[in-house]
Computed example of a mutant assay.
Amino acid sequence: MDKPQRGYWCECWSEDLTTEARPVLRASFDAYTAPQADRWVAVALRTISPALDPDASQDAWEWLYDGRIATRKALLRAEPCTVTLTQSRTRLTWTIRPVIFLPLAHRQGVGLPSCTDDFKPH
């Protein structure tokens, strides 16, 4: 069995600021390095920046030029990071958290618990 591996769990949430609705998970990503984690956010910000209003676009580019460096340093210290933009009445939040990825057990492996035989694919 493989060993646990350090990495980062990344999520993107959206929130409608005009309602009391809960935030909605829009995307998630498992990264195995700090550069891979902050690159995921950077690609998203570069992709949506042309559609953002001027203030939100400026916030995005400020993070891309300055905030990304601070984010990378924090990730290398195993600190969680958040990037948030507000566009009109929508708040977008990207989170990056250090995690330890546990290896998955193979169903054909030896010594699996007896409950694994209860699973029947549809």
Results as ranks from 00 to 15, higher is better:
residue 1 M to L: 04
residue 1 M to S: 15
residue 4 P to Q: 13
residue 4 P to M: 06
residue 5 Q to N: 07
residue 6 R to S: 12
residue 6 R to C: 05
residue 6 R to W: 08
residue 7 G to E: 02
residue 8 Y to K: 09
residue 9 W to C: 01
residue 10 C to E: 01
residue 11 E to Q: 08
residue 12 C to K: 09
residue 12 C to P: 02
residue 15 E to R: 14
residue 16 D to C: 04
residue 18 T to C: 02
residue 19 T to M: 01
residue 21 A to C: 15
residue 21 A to G: 09
residue 25 L to D: 09
residue 27 A to S: 12
residue 30 D to C: 06
residue 30 D to T: 07
residue 30 D to V: 03
residue 32 Y to W: 13
residue 33 T to R: 14
residue 37 A to M: 10
residue 37 A to F: 02
residue 37 A to H: 00
residue 38 D to N: 09
residue 39 R to Q: 14
residue 40 W to F: 13
residue 41 V to I: 15
residue 42 A to P: 00
residue 43 V to M: 12
residue 44 A to W: 00
residue 45 L to D: 00
residue 46 R to K: 15
residue 47 T to W: 04
residue 47 T to E: 05
residue 48 I to T: 06
residue 48 I to R: 01
residue 53 D to L: 05
residue 55 D to H: 09
residue 56 A to R: 04
residue 56 A to V: 10
residue 59 D to S: 04
residue 60 A to C: 04
residue 61 W to G: 00
residue 61 W to R: 03
residue 62 E to I: 10
residue 62 E to C: 05
residue 62 E to Y: 09
residue 63 W to V: 03
residue 63 W to F: 13
residue 63 W to A: 01
residue 65 Y to F: 13
residue 65 Y to T: 12
residue 67 G to F: 02
residue 70 A to F: 06
residue 71 T to V: 07
residue 73 K to E: 10
residue 74 A to H: 05
residue 75 L to Y: 02
residue 75 L to K: 06
residue 76 L to C: 12
residue 76 L to W: 07
residue 76 L to P: 00
residue 78 A to Y: 15
residue 79 E to T: 09
residue 79 E to M: 10
residue 79 E to V: 10
residue 81 C to L: 04
residue 84 T to M: 03
residue 85 L to H: 02
residue 86 T to F: 00
residue 87 Q to Y: 07
residue 87 Q to P: 02
residue 87 Q to A: 07
residue 89 R to A: 01
residue 90 T to S: 05
residue 91 R to L: 02
residue 93 T to K: 06
residue 95 T to A: 07
residue 97 R to Q: 09
residue 97 R to T: 12
residue 102 L to S: 06
residue 104 L to W: 11
residue 104 L to D: 15
residue 105 A to C: 10
residue 105 A to H: 15
residue 105 A to S: 15
residue 105 A to F: 13
residue 108 Q to P: 05
residue 108 Q to I: 10
residue 108 Q to L: 08
residue 108 Q to T: 08
residue 110 V to W: 06
residue 112 L to K: 10
residue 112 L to S: 11
residue 113 P to N: 12
residue 113 P to E: 11
residue 114 S to K: 09
residue 115 C to Y: 07
residue 116 T to N: 11
residue 116 T to E: 10
residue 117 D to E: 15
residue 117 D to R: 12
residue 117 D to Q: 15
residue 118 D to H: 12
residue 119 F to V: 11
residue 120 K to V: 10
residue 120 K to Y: 12
residue 122 H to G: 09
